[in-house]
Design a protein around this nucleic acid. Sequence first.
DNA 1: AAAGACTCTGCTTAATTAAGCAATATCTTA
DNA 2: TAAGATATTGCTTAATTAAGCAGAGTCTTT
Lengths: 110, 110
Amino acid sequence: MAPQLAVRDPLLALSSPRRREIVRLVWSDERSAGEIARAFEVTWPAISQNLRVLKDAGLIKERRVGTSRLYRADRAALRPLESYLRSMWSRNIDRLRLLAEAEERRKSKR
Amino acid sequence: MAPQLAVRDPLLALSSPRRREIVRLVWSDERSAGEIARAFEVTWPAISQNLRVLKDAGLIKERRVGTSRLYRADRAALRPLESYLRSMWSRNIDRLRLLAEAEERRKSKR
DNA sequence: AAAGACTCTGCTTAATTAAGCAATATCTTA
DNA sequence: TAAGATATTGCTTAATTAAGCAGAGTCTTT
């Protein structure tokens, strides 16, 4: 990955289906990076990178406990985008798209 | 692990059987961190930490190639300790001890 | 409009850093 | 000197950083 300079733009951050699904996961519950990673069919670093983008954009908050890092949606910051997110979530488009892509990856690896 | 401030003392670095075995592995051949890790029955980070101690003590040299790091003994720096090392190696005490410890860990985990 | 060159995004693999735990060794001090 | 407190070592688990690759989108230039 390129140097990954901090992206502060919330819209850019939420333009990715993967990141919208992550936000969905931490919308009501605080979750560790590991729990989040397990919910998707990609590697830990892939999730770690997406968490970073969301954090840089100020959309999620991180709290460290022991060796874990817990993430939670920053609802205040997400306020203006909430209805957009809810409509995406309700249609489940993102989730299906990500599953399809995972399937693709599995296939092409074999 | 504590902050791990750089240990520059070669003797201290070589006081560990694990690290003596690592030096043995990279004595004649340059090897990647991964190759070295695979040679032992402990986790990658454990090996990474030991490589760091050896490097800080100036006993091994690191070279980066792509995403890999290659390590090799610094024979010049090891000169005065070479006969000590060779005698340890020839008796294979360290290797056996490490194998025994791995066995221990396996047992106590079950 | 097609062909090639660039850039961007999201991922993988390789390796490290960070925090903490358990066992041992090393200091007190009563 | 036995008993407890404290430090040190070597590991594990959790998570990140670093480098690079492959595919999609965007720009030329012809």
